[in-house]
Amino acid sequence: MSLHKVKVFTRFERFWHWTQMALIFTLLFSGAGIHGFHHLLNFETLVWVHVISAIGLIILWTFAIFWHLTTGNWRHYMPTTDGLFKVARYYAWGIFRGEDHPYRKRFWHKHNPLQAMSYLFLKVALFPLLWLTGLAYLLYGYWGQGALTAGSLEWVAVIHTAAAFAMAVFIIIHIYLLTTGHSFREHVRPMITGYDEVDLTPAEEAYLEQDEPGRILE
């Protein structure tokens, strides 16, 4: 095993990440306004912005899901307990004592176990929850009449709002964790350039040098 600078975030992945970031911020901002937390824009504009961003995010995610499945990148998010405790211990204890991060990125595990697990939760629980309730909310007019119309909208709204709060909590922790380790810039750079230090097995190294020389810098 040896450390190499390898392109771990492809162009699509980076595009997906930053577009998603912009859309989620827009959704949080407009959603908070619709909910009545601020009045920086009028309701009509807020709803328009919210709906357009939501549609944009859904389209983006449709591509992302396709990309995950076809490229095999879904494997990065497979949950594992291997090393999970070490990482948790690091954030709770070792980080204060100046210890190094216990996780080394691997070619098919570019996220640490805790990170992978939280991203997985985001992808399989929080995002679908927001989408489904959001779509139900948006298509309220097509629910038909009767029992659904009066009482159930409140439940949809409650779940949608609660999930949005959870999303905001995730973002705060996500951004904060960028400051751990070497530096904020070093954490953000891979998502801009695509390259990061990865522990490669000899076979992976040989494969990259042979078949994808552009992906491995040094």
Binding site: H35, G36, F43, T149, G151, L153, A157, T161, A162, V169
Partner: peptide, 24 residues
Amino acid sequence: GFYMPGRDHNQWVDSIGLLALLAT
């Protein structure tokens, strides 16, 4: 008797949500 976006909000969701944000 009905929920209307912008007018209505669930006090529990808002309180717990804001508390969670603050705690984070």
